[in-house]
Design a protein around this nucleic acid. Sequence first.
DNA 1: AAAACGGGGGA
DNA 2: TCCCCAGTTTT
Length: 358
Amino acid sequence: MEAVQTVENFAPRVLAWFDVHGRKDLPWQKDKTPYRVWISEIMLQQTQVTTVIPYYEKFMSSFPDVYALASAKQDDVLAHWSGLGYYARARNMHKAATMLVDEFDGEFPKTVEGVCELPGIGRSTASAILSISRGVQSAILDGNVKRVLARFHAIPNWPGEKKTENRMWGVAESYMPEIRCGEYTQAMMDLGATLCTRSKPKCHVCPLSEDCAGLASGEPTTFPISKPKKAAKPIKTAQFVVLQSDGKVLLEKRPASGIWGGLWSLPEFAHDASIVLEAEQRFQCGIQSVMALSSFRHTFSHYHLDIIPSLVTVKEAVGVHETEKYQWFSVDDAFTLGLPAPVRSILESVEKGDTLLL
DNA sequence: AAAACGGGGGA
DNA sequence: TCCCCAGTTTT
């Protein structure tokens, strides 16, 4: 037995389902002019159907056509948008209306490329408008369609990846039928919004369930796979001490490998260590004063380091012997060495005298 | 708390 | 070309 010829059967099944279960009496489905469909698509990008309906009705009665919208005050347009969010889209829409009137003679462009020239309209929205209002054979790829296709093919990649998205565009176009284009677009949106939902999809009544790879996998909701999370970086904390004596600061040479390998850094203390106790113990010297410097976060590729720097002055450098590992430098000389960026920054603040408190 | 959403705009 | 953003809902 041959596998089901999906490309042949996909759209007919979706359309047959739509004929029975699809929504056909929404306000923007009455008089499907490009203008009315356009406004609905922009509103629906960000809000559920039930919320959009009253906004749409009011918007249409105030701005019944592109000329009314183009000649409206931006404030008035924004007032009609108030509560929908993403106000840049209202501004884009208003701008697009003036462009349509001034440059397109009030007529919507006939091609996807042309419609995409308008601000706020990209490939998917352009295809939605043209297929629904004019029957143009051009596929959409909004969140609903991405979910349906990702499940149907058990696509193992995140749709946010350009490569994956491009492949999905190819699939979407390949399923776009030659006839009933507008209804097919509507049907795919309805399928995603009412059946193939993010959680608890109603696979048992889905017209595509028979050869849905996502369902076959047993875990359809794992598709589309979610954004790869960049393993929340651990946060480490350390105290960095600028030990200062006689105008010089003590630097510590880092081991050749690992973080900041071979660079000159500042002595580090555990975040909960007492500066005074720790410094006297490690360096056998009398502390004269301790001043806090501003704490800040340094981020590595794999963790955050919260740095708590302080400026510690000692009476004499006695007890702090210079070794391979520890050496005294004037701040000016220190700047000529290889220093980790945060250490350089701490020394700069010391040089400027940016201490916080005694 | 984090991801999703569709397109714009800056790196 | 890639990445981040807006502003709200959903998970």
